[in-house]
Write a protein that binds this DNA or RNA. Structure first.
Lengths: 130, 130
DNA sequence: GTTGCCCTTGACGCGCGGGTCAGGGGTTAG
DNA sequence: CTAACCCCTGACCCGCGCGTCAAGGGCAAC
């Protein structure tokens, strides 16, 4: 399986796969005699895991930091929700949760301050003229 | 008043002032015969307003889009909270509030999904070995 | 005059997750 | 054999809000 098919099977692009490899999320796959990458279904599954973790807000660095444990997840199917061998178990998830909480709190404060200040004081009748 | 003093008076840097001017948040100030920018207290007050709006999460583009109304705020003092002539009154605040709400909701969903998935399944006894 | 800080414009850097060329070579169907 | 598509690497691009450097000129104090 060459990179285009593998990427399509994982729902992404060849560029992303090379990028993950470059950043250490994927181990360099075997090459054909002419230098083309050869992927198997395990790699595709792994890419799906990676993309799911990224879509959950983990960074490339987060995933890389526990790349050696991703194989716990990357069998032939992903555990739907309650399966064993969940995401990372090395502290990155907790840190990411804390970062998310902090960001949510920060945005909530901003929201409050902004709506406090913007009581919409009818300076120019609603501004719907445009 | 040259740019360094004006920037310090507004609590920022010369670079930021030139940047605001370049992006259309500040009208180009008069220059001395040798080309140096000359600012007065009105400009300083305006910069303070701009920085406050930016600190509330508005973007440069938001502020630029209502740059022509900022003079409603930029007298010698800022209205503390309930004064007339509030922030922008042209829809950008509503849009920004909506964007903040959307972002908060998105992060909250992420947080929930991430904590759902990361039930910390005791794969390797807490991971505090390092 | 001269030292030393301040000003000018222009250009690049950052962090993130890749997108998008550019210039070459592989691979396969007709 | 050739066309059409795929793959390779390396490099620059995006948005945001400036920070930082570079090369030159101004301004005030001594």
């Amino acid at each position: 399986m060459r990179i285009g098919d593998a990427a399509a099977a994982a729902g992404t692009t060849p560029r992303a796969l090379r990028f993950y490899e470059q950043r250490g999320l994927l181990t360099p796959p075997p090459r054909t005699a002419t230098g083309q990458r050869e992927y198997g279904p395990r790699e595709v599954a792994r890419v799906r895991i990676i993309r799911e973790l990224l879509s959950l807000g983990l960074t490339i660095e987060d995933v890389r930091s526990c790349a050696d444990r991703l194989h716990l997840l990357d069998g032939d199917r992903l555990p739907p929700r309650g399966g064993p061998g969940c995401t990372t178990s090395s502290g990155v998830v907790e840190r990411r949760l804390a970062a998310l909480d902090a960001e949510i709190a920060r945005l909530s404060r901003l929201r409050e301050q902004l709506s406090d200040r913007a009581r919409l004081p009818a300076v120019e009748a609603g501004g719907a003229e445009h």
